[in-house]
């Protein structure tokens, strides 16, 4: 390690940068109780969602038409829906889809956006073309685009994830590109170029690590938004297959009973709101600790 310290002085390797960020995060968690709160709530939600199959609840898709629309009871804590399915089981299992959709969209949008943004930021010719495409994509309201995509491709969890990812990419690209443009002219990058370092190496070694902190923050917001948008898609009838319980689906199916069996919308609604609230709070905390100067980007 010591013989390479010279190298590190100029520009620490990616692993070190990540460790540094991780340390900063751990530190932030200690200092920032709201962020800790967000993380704890999220963990509880994830445990409830992914642990649901082991709680001895009725199968979430098990219908029993004769027992439909029951009020909460010892057998069905949240009552039953219009097909006589256990609402508690559905709401807990529903968390799986919502969390998977949220996390996948965040991961995919940031990684695709990162690659495109890095390339666009570093190559002027690519930049001109790519950014026009991104502008065009960004001018289509994201929810409309997602609805159209799911409606046309057919409803499946996979399609919902892709459809929610596509409209997010341009925003990530812009973010990454702005960081790259800022760094491109800085001394250490210019120096690396002068030394004949390959473009790939510059991009991945010197520039990419700097985009990580804002990207992580951005990812949390994308994740929160994707969880809500999944619900919107289901609500207008272009979401995940209704047989699979997701919070959006449960609420969409329950909308008819809003005035009598409020629980069908309320329980998943509360779980969803708490989850999104927790993700946002966590994201806010991350932003404050990773990059206090960074503004909220949409």
């Amino acid at each position: 390690m010591t013989d390479r310290s010279h190298d590190r002085l100029q520009d620490p390797p990616l692993s070190a940068r990540l460790t540094e960020n991780a340390v900063a995060m751990a530190d932030a968690l200690r200092r920032n109780p709201t962020m800790l709160f967000g993380l704890v709530v999220l963990t509880v939600m994830a445990l409830l969602a992914f642990g649901a199959p082991y709680f001895g609840l009725p199968e979430p898709m098990r219908q029993s038409p004769i027992d439909r629309l029951q009020d909460p009871s010892a057998a069905h804590w949240f009552g039953t829906d219009m097909y006589g399915r256990d609402l508690l089981s559905r709401v807990l299992h529903g968390g799986q889809i919502s969390l998977v959709v949220g996390l996948s969209v965040a991961a995919m949008a940031t990684s695709v956006g990162l690659v495109i943004g890095l390339v666009a930021g570093f190559n002027r010719r690519v930049d001109a073309i790519v950014m026009r495409f991104m502008d065009a994509l960004m001018s289509i309201p994201s929810i409309l685009l997602a609805i159209a995509l799911v409606a046309l491709w057919g409803s499946s969890v996979q399609n919902v994830i892709i459809a929610l990812t596509i409209p997010e990419v341009p925003r990530v690209v812009r973010l990454v590109r702005s960081v790259v443009l800022m760094l491109r002219d800085q001394t250490f990058v210019q120096a690396a170029i002068a030394c004949g370092t390959s473009t790939t190496r510059i991009l991945f070694r010197h520039i990419m690590p700097n985009t990580i902190p804002p990207l992580i923050v951005q990812a949390t917001y994308i994740c929160a938004q994707a969880v809500i948008f999944e619900a919107y898609l289901s609500f207008v009838g272009a979401g995940t297959p209704p047989e699979i319980p997701s919070w959006g689906n449960i609420m969409a199916e329950g909308r008819m009973f809003f005035f009598q069996n409020f629980g069908i919308i309320m329980y998943p609604g509360i779980f969803l709101a708490i989850t999104v609230f927790a993700i946002n709070t966590f994201g806010d905390g991350l932003r404050d600790s990773l990059d206090p100067r960074m503004k909220r980007r949409i």
Binding site: A224, I228, A231, Y232, F235, G248, M251, R255, F258, I265, M266, G269, L272, A273, I274, V276, F277, N280, T281, D284
Partner: peptide, 14 residues
């Protein structure tokens, strides 16, 4: 403010 965009609009609407 955070709650505001944590709620799906249709829940609020209803």
């Amino acid at each position: 403010a955070v709650l505001g965009f944590s709620l799906p609009v249709f829940v609020l609407g209803y």
